[in-house]
C-alpha cells in the first residue's frame, strides 16, 4: 500500500518534470518576443538584447530549464517578468478565487446530482423524467453562452448581482457570495448535467442486478438496498466522474473568469501566457500537474477502498 503510493508519487514527479520541460521547450520558440513585450514598442533592439541577456533567455533551453529546476528545488519559483511578484505568491493569491468557485460549485453539483440520480433510479416515474430533463437541459448550451446570458439578464438588466469583480471571503462574506453566485451557477449547471445522468445510469444498473433480488428475498429493507448496497456499488464510477468534473471545472473556469472579470487562476494564466511571462507559466504548469496527479491518486485510493474488486494494488 505504502509502496504503491510511493511509486505513484515517483511517477508523478517524473511526469511533472516531463511536462514542465515540454512546456519550457515549446515556450522557447517565443522567447524572442518576451523581452520586446516587456519593454514595449518604443524599445531599441540593443535594449531588447540586453534584457534578454539579463533574463538569461539567450542561453540554451536545457541550461535555462535546469536553472529554473534548481530554483524550484530550493523553493524559489522565480519572479514574474512583468510585476516582479514571486511566482509562488502570485499563483497562491489567485487560487483563492478559482478554488472558491470550483469547490462551492462541485459540492453543490455533487449533492444535487447524487440526490437526483438516486431518486430517479429508485423512484422511477415522474422523478426519473425530471432528472433526465434536467441533465439534458444542462448539456444544451456551452458555458460561454450560459455565463453571458446570466450576466446580461441578472447583472446588466436586473442588476441583482455585480456584473464583474470579486471580494475575498474573509473581507466580506456577503459580497463574496454575491460575486460568485452567477459563475457558480454556470459551473453547477454543467456539473449536474455531467454527473446526474451518470449516477442515475449506474444506480439503475445496480438495482437490476441479481444481488438486489437476493437481498430483497431475505427481507432486507428497500432503503438499505438502495442507499447501502446499490449506492455503494455505484460510488466508484461516480467518484471517477466527480474527479474529472473537478478538473474540468478548474480548467473551464478560464472562460467564466473572463466573462465575469474575476481575478482567478484561469484568467491569470491566460494573461500571463499572452504576455509570455515564462516563470509564471511554468509555475502554473507545475501546479496544474501536481493538482491533476494528486486528484487521480486520491480517486484511485478511494476507489480501491470502496470496491474490493477494482483494487489496483
Amino acid at each position: 500500500m505504502l509502496q504503491y503510493i510511493l511509486r505513484r508519487l515517483a511517477t508523478a514527479l517524473v511526469l511533472a518534470l516531463l511536462v514542465t520541460f515540454f512546456t519550457f521547450w515549446l515556450l522557447s520558440s517565443s522567447f524572442d518576443g518576451v523581452a520586446a513585450n516587456i519593454l514595449g514598442p518604443a524599445a531599441t533592439s540593443e535594449a531588447i538584447e540586453a534584457l534578454q541577456v539579463q533574463l538569461g533567455l539567450d542561453r540554451s533551453v536545457v541550461v535555462q530549464y535546469f536553472d529554473w529546476l534548481g530554483g524550484v528545488l530550493t523553493g524559489d519559483f522565480g519572479n514574474s517578468y512583468f510585476t516582479s511578484e514571486p511566482v509562488a505568491q502570485a499563483v497562491g493569491s489567485r487560487l483563492g478565487v478559482t478554488l472558491s468557485l470550483v469547490l462551492v460549485a462541485l459540492a453543490i453539483s455533487v449533492v444535487i446530482s447524487v440526490a437526483l440520480g438516486v431518486l430517479a433510479a429508485s423512484r422511477a416515474g415522474a422523478v426519473d423524467r425530471l432528472s433526465q430533463a434536467v441533465s439534458l437541459t444542462g448539456h444544451l448550451f456551452p458555458n460561454l453562452l450560459i455565463a453571458i446570458v446570466l450576466v446580461v439578464v441578472f447583472a446588466v438588466n436586473l442588476g441583482w448581482f455585480p456584473a464583474t469583480g470579486y471580494t475575498p471571503l474573509a473581507e466580506n462574506p456577503g459580497r463574496w457570495a454575491l460575486a460568485i453566485t452567477l459563475p457558480v451557477i454556470v459551473l453547477v449547471i454543467n456539473g449536474i448535467a455531467n454527473m446526474a445522468a451518470q449516477v442515475r445510469g449506474t444506480m439503475i444498473g445496480e438495482l437490476q442486478k441479481d444481488y438486489v433480488r437476493t437481498l430483497r428475498s431475505r427481507g432486507v429493507a428497500t432503503r438499505s438496498i438502495v442507499y447501502r448496497h446499490a449506492l455503494r456499488n455505484a460510488a466508484s464510477p461516480a467518484l471517477v466522474v466527480m474527479s474529472l468534473e473537478f478538473l474540468s471545472m478548474f480548467g473551464g473556469a478560464l472562460i467564466i473568469e473572463n466573462v465575469f472579470a474575476l481575478p482567478g487562476f484561469g484568467s491569470f494564466a491566460f494573461n500571463s501566457a499572452l504576455r509570455g511571462d515564462v516563470p509564471v507559466i511554468l509555475g502554473i504548469t507545475l501546479f496544474s500537474v501536481l493538482l491533476v496527479v494528486s486528484i487521480n491518486l486520491l480517486t484511485d485510493l478511494i476507489n480501491g477502498w470502496l470496491n474490493p474488486k477494482a483494487r489496483l494494488f
Binding site: S30, G251, L254, A273
Partner: peptide, 22 residues
C-alpha cells in the same frame, strides 16, 4: 495509463494558449 495521465495533466485550455506561437 501513463500516456493519458500525461495528456490529462496538461492544463487543457492553458496548453492551447501556450501553444499559440506554434
Amino acid at each position: 495509463e501513463w500516456l493519458f495521465n500525461l495528456i490529462m495533466t496538461f492544463p487543457g485550455l492553458l496548453l492551447l494558449i501556450v501553444l499559440l506561437p506554434v
